[in-house]
Write a protein that binds this DNA or RNA. Structure first.
Lengths: 176, 176
DNA sequence: GGGCCTATGTATAATAT
DNA sequence: TATATTATACATAGGCC
């Protein structure tokens, strides 16, 4: 304790040169931390300035990471088209992503028509919801069967929501 | 000269809340600075980790700014193909749709880490769920705003569900 | 990899030019 | 709108689990 130069707990942040990190393990750590930071900055920019943005990054392991406000594909479409008409409901409807969603939604609906377990599903769902911090924890804890039933239930709810949305003539396609 | 005495100390950097800057002039300055910072961070990430990345941002005045390493379009093409040029086509067995969903899920996860807004959504959702016989009654009683928020929340949940479904390798496509 | 920690490097809010 | 300044808030390198 007497030494002024007593070794501190760690070295603190060091200045680094901006050049390729050669050591793979360090590179991974740096990528992970800085990618997070980059996305956070982008998020802040979008909120503060009320603008749209998208980021696409491939990790050293070639895994794809992306950020998008309001959505990566929407921003990319705007970029490709060279237009900024984000909220054009017609083009939003026609975006591939929404199409996919709608198609899959219709398929799911078909299946639902032949399902007779709806009531059971609802009951199971209610149980799950009532068990506490379901939003953060339940999904991960669910068994395969539970999950399946839960998904069916969500789809039913979704249909109801879409109906309501139609009634309200909501302008933006918040949901597919 | 008297500049020395005149040099009133600045307030220095102030803490700000991450929410929309209302004053247009400030918003512009903030955008300009933060956009530069964002691009610099991206550049550093690319050099340090030897990776490819692209950023697309629209300014408050709808002007397009983009960053790309090695080139915006190259990275976008990689994204659209859903594969890097260094990968073989084996990964193509996964449907593009699922990939899209997974990407969006990852996005959502990252955003959740940094955005308090989403937490608010969840809290609101929890309130709605906890108010009783929500399944049968709540939807019809919800205000337009409530409904919208609810739909956004469900949409996020849906992403999470898709991710889980993928993990479980479910045979039937109950959900997309 | 995912978190946590601390010391320190860096980004940036407010301001003025 | 970009740039310069300054004081501070925030991000992060290097460690350690």
């Amino acid at each position: 304790m007497d030494m002024v130069n007593q070794r501190k707990k760690n070295m603190g942040r060091q200045k680094i040169e901006i050049k390729k990190v050669e050591k793979d393990s360090n590179k991974l750590v740096t990528f992970s931390k800085r990618r997070q930071g980059l996305f956070r900055k982008a998020s802040e920019l979008c909120v503060l300035c009320d603008v749209h943005a998208a980021i696409i990054v491939f990790s050293p392991g070639d895994k794809l990471y992306c950020f998008g406000q309001p959505d990566t594909n929407v921003v990319l479409n705007s970029y490709i088209k060279g237009t900024t008409e984000f909220e054009d409901s017609k083009s939003a409807e026609n975006s591939p992503t929404c199409k996919d969603y709608n198609r899959q939604y219709e398929e799911a609906q078909k299946m639902l028509e032949t399902e007779k377990k709806k009531l059971e599903d609802v009951q199971n769902l209610a149980k799950i919801f009532n068990k506490g911090d379901w939003w953060n924890d339940s999904i991960d804890d669910m068994s395969s069967d539970q999950l399946e039933q839960f998904m069916v239930s969500i789809y039913e709810l979704r249909r109801k929501l879409v109906e309501r949305a139609d009634e309200l003539v909501m302008k933006q396609s918040v949901m597919p």
